[in-house]
Write a protein that binds this DNA or RNA. Structure first.
Lengths: 189, 189, 189, 189
DNA sequence: ACCGGCGGGACGCCCCGTTTCT
DNA sequence: AGAAACGGGGCGTCCCGCCGGT
């Protein structure tokens, strides 16, 4: 072990962190490896000692991002905090503005669906973990995850549309409409 | 006049049609102009006589696709057909499999949100027209379009997630859960 | 027809000519497309309108070079010129020094043998035409091409070794020994 | 001393052995150091403790390969075995198929000729030793090495051409024609 | 003090979106 | 009107050197 313990792993995780932000901000196919590596303070020559390919980086960066989102969810919304807090954590102005550190699903879903199965499977696993956590905040926690999945789908679609439209106040309205609808879904007996 | 009247316009619309399919299938930044033009039976060089740039093509292709979707909605779901028919037109196996001629929002929203304002404005206008049409099918048609927008958001998110996961039967479950949730939103008093 | 007639074909053949020289001088895998195109007065962006890939370029450049060699052989050594003239056309100081416009077999054979079958087939065809022409200069012209092939093999090996050794006078000796041996093979009753 | 005596030297020779095979199989410029080191069971970074550069590796690997060929020649063809045995040791199906452990001249000569003088000198020395050994098998062993060099040139060219053509039975014919011609050169009074 | 994990640039082929020139 | 060329950048891999722990 020549470098300080964990050096390699630290570098790898740093690249993953930067990549997960770039992918969310600029899109997966529009993000170049050289730009990602430069943003990580490295050159592209160092990439292939850490990852097999861009596809592998995307696969791992997706898991990284979803895992982070899960950790943030648990931090911000402890058990019993109520479903509205969870919903407002997804649908707010910060999320609207900054996709960089926001929900990877909202930023990348169509591109994920065009990835090879291996990548989609990795995303699926991480997503289901997230949905399970989300489900614990539902009033009728005995229900399956299907309800949580629908609420999540609504939030993802709402956030994407609010980001896409040109009119700022329209975006706000869409966001608020999404919050209300999500609450309806959550509270439905 | 060497070409029959309207030849040029036909060509332009043919390119738009092909482009709108390619963009939905492969993504906007992953679709190349050369591939689009070749699929349209033309050569690379002919592009710039019809469009100013790739961005302009995307902008127009988005409107084309949304306009087509609106026409199809009105064809398949005449007034009074009931909201469930509308929902099932969005969330079904065909849509799951073929993004090529499906909902452009489900296929492209994150990329749209990264486009310049002009493109987002064009999308916004076409989207609002679509949402208005969708709203006419809601039970309480007097309400604003906010409800319709939420239902649409839910459907877009649901379709994207169902497309992205690797497990086929899971995708089916997600789709069905989306249908139920959409009905809840639609019927809410 | 927008560019002057034959412009495209002229450019294509110019690239082929430059490439066939570069490949012979520097080797096939050591020659870069950018360098070849720059030497042809073009940029690398223009390459793929003329050739499908580097492999296709190599394939065609080989045929080009062999065809040129055949034309030169027929120019320099008209029928009845005697076999020695043919041999000395292959084994002389000019050939020793300048592989750039010399025998493509001597310059590239090991790399050709590592190419896909399609390339090797193209080389084979052009080579056999060359061998046939060479055979017409043999005394016993009724014999098969086998003798001509052996003489050609000898000349190729001789030229390669003479080029590879460091000692100049040794190279001369090898060349002269090759000439004598080729004459022996040619005159064998 | 952490490693047993000679460990370092063994490693060095192991790299040389692997490199000499890779160079013959894939060509010198097409063989990467990373691939060679990986095939030797080492990592990239260990290379420069054993060799100064890729060029130095090639230089030494050439000598290694030629020295091995000489040893094999002496093993397989003891004094008095007859020249035909020697010729058939060079021109046979095994040599046709596997350049990996075959004649380095046949596999690499054009690339050697493009190397710096130092490399060509090293090759020259090893080649001349090989030619001398080959000459001892000629009937008129008093003659200079020129005859042996010509025979060797013929065999190298023959093997290269037989390897390069696409038609398998043609390759066989070329090989057999080479054997006959080599015998002619060897037996010439 | 040696030696190898790790990183640095540069360049490989290929293809992009765009402009120019006949 | 559109074929041909441009320049840059995509990902991947090259050869090589620089730290720093055993």
């Amino acid at each position: 072990m020549r470098y300080e313990k964990g050096h390699r792993e630290n570098t790898r995780e740093h690249i993953l962190e930067v990549a997960s932000q770039r992918f969310r901000r600029d899109g997966a196919s529009a993000s170049g490896l050289a730009g990602i590596m430069a943003a990580a303070g490295l050159t592209n020559g160092a990439f292939y000692t850490h990852f097999e390919s861009k596809e592998a980086l995307l696969r791992e960066a997706l898991v990284t991002a979803l895992t982070e989102q899960l950790a943030r969810l648990e931090d911000d919304c402890p058990a019993g905090c109520g479903i509205e807090a969870v919903i407002r954590r997804h649908l707010n102005e910060d999320e609207l503005a900054g996709s960089e550190v926001g929900c990877p699903s909202a930023a990348l879903l169509p591109e994920i669906s065009r990835q090879p199965e291996r990548t989609r499977k990795a995303y699926e696993d991480a997503l289901l973990a997230y949905i399970s956590a989300l489900a614990t905040h539902l009033p009728d926690s005995g229900s399956s995850n299907s309800r949580a999945m629908a609420i999540f789908s609504l939030m993802v679609g709402t956030l994407q549309i609010a980001r896409a439209v040109a009119d700022t106040s329209l975006a706000q309205d869409i966001l608020e409409g999404g919050v209300e609808a999500a609450l309806v879904l959550a509270r439905k007996s």
